[in-house]
Structures are given as structure tokens and as C-alpha cells.
Simulated assay, not measured.
Amino acid sequence: MIKIPHTVVLAALVTMGMFGGIASADAVSGPGSGSGFGPARVTVNDNQSEITVVGEGNLSSIPDVMRLNTGVEVRRTTAGAAFADARKAAAKLTEALLGAGIAAKDLQTNELSLGPVYDNYPVVAGYRAAQGVEAVVRDVDSADKVIDAVAAVGEEARLNGVSFEVSDTRKALKAARDAAFEDARARAEQYAGLAGDELGRVVSISEEGGTPPSPVMFSGAMAADKASISPGQQNISVRVRVVYELR
């Protein structure tokens, strides 16, 4: 019997828009294109007919949680005075955050420090004490209110940056997987037709390395500007390799 192999290469991308809707765009490229996708390979012979395709689904979601990294810092002539005043300022900061609607369970101390300040080492010019707090803001629309409350604490207050994240990525990942699988099936159907065959059952499915969501970071200086308090978007991608029978 004569074996007749064919090989076809594909890189496919399906881009999903804001969660709840899908906008698609297709790209086809060959090896060495820098796309990062694996091949879609069609092999036909006397014993077995299969097609392997790689599809990708991308989802853009709007973050619904902001993490505010804030705190207080004071400098005094003695270590005891610096530490005591830092603790008082931290209590005032905590009260301000609670008053701005942050739940007590969403406040976490992430820094507590005390040390000397030098003008000309080893001569000690004073002491610096600091206490940091991370506040989880679960209502992003209230971000301006929370940041204003921190600034109102006084000259001891510090804004060290914010980050945004999606609290529940399960729905986004599910939608990205759906898109990746549909992408793979569409490619498989197209190439099966080009090979003169029909698509059969799924032989195997494997999820490959995608892109996990990552926090969107902004600096403390940006956080001080209301116009910059925006959660932006986060992208989640899933890549799936599917093997189909051809018939």
C-alpha cells in the first residue's frame, strides 16, 4: 500500500472583547513568524487519518478590585518618639480607611520599621519610624474616596502605589477555553475540507501554557491624580491542542 502524507501549518488567534461579548480576528502564519503558536498538522495514510490543531482564546476583563499600598512615616529626634508618633499616625490612618468603607478584614499591616537617620555617618541625626498598610478596595468606584481619605490623614501619610485585579477569574478562564476550543475546531474543519475529508471525533485535548492574569500596577504618584484612577483591562489567554480523527 502507498502512504500519502500531507502537512499543513497554521497559527490561529481568536481575540475576545470585553467579557460578555466576543469580537474575533483571525491570523494565519507559517513557521518562524514569531507567533508562538504550535502547528496544525494533517497526516493522511493507509492506517490512520488525524489532524492536530492549536487554538487560542483571549479574554479582556475589567478588574473589580484595587489594592492600595499605603502607610505612615515620621522622623523624630529619639527612637521612642518616632515609634510612638508613627503608631498614632497608623491608628489615624486605619480609622480613615474604615471610615471610607474599607472592611477591617481587608486591612493588613505590611511594614513596621524603626531605624536611625544619618547626616554624616556615624552621627545619628534622628530616627525614622514607618508602618505600612495594604487596603483591599472591593468597590473600585470608591477608589478616589479612599485615596482622598488617606491624604487627609496629614503629612505622615504615604501613598506607595496601587494595583488592580479581577477577583474571580473562573468565568473569564472558562470563556477563554470555550474560545480556544472553537478556534481549534474551526481550523480543523477548514483543513479537513482542504484535505478532502470530514472531521471526526476528538481523539485528545490538552491545554497548553497560556497567559495568566497579572495585576495592573500604578505608582503612588499616579494614584494621587484622580484622572489616573482607572482599573484598565486585564488579558487572560488559553491555548489548547486538539487532535481529531478524519473520515
Rank of each mutant, 00 (worst) to 15 (best):
E198H: 10
D46H: 11
L13Q: 14
A11L: 08
E165P: 00
S237F: 07
I51Q: 03
D141W: 00
V153D: 11
P215I: 11
F164C: 10
P212N: 05
D46A: 14
S35N: 10
A23S: 12
G71Y: 02
R67H: 08
K3M: 12
I2H: 10
A12V: 12
E207F: 15
S167T: 05
G20S: 11
G99N: 03
A184T: 14
N45S: 11
A86T: 03
D183H: 07
A188I: 04
A130S: 14
A40N: 09
S228N: 14
T15G: 10
A103Q: 10
M18K: 09
V150R: 01
K145N: 05
E207H: 13
G80N: 14
A186P: 10
L199E: 03
M66T: 06
P31I: 01
G20L: 00
S33K: 06
T211F: 01
A25D: 15
Q108R: 14
M1P: 11
V153N: 08
S167M: 03
A152S: 14
P116M: 07
D46W: 08
Y191Q: 13
D26G: 10
G57M: 06
V133A: 00
G80D: 15
A157F: 13
E134P: 00
K226C: 00
P5M: 06
G32V: 06
R187Y: 05
K105M: 09
V243P: 00
P215S: 09
Y118S: 02
G17N: 09
A180P: 02
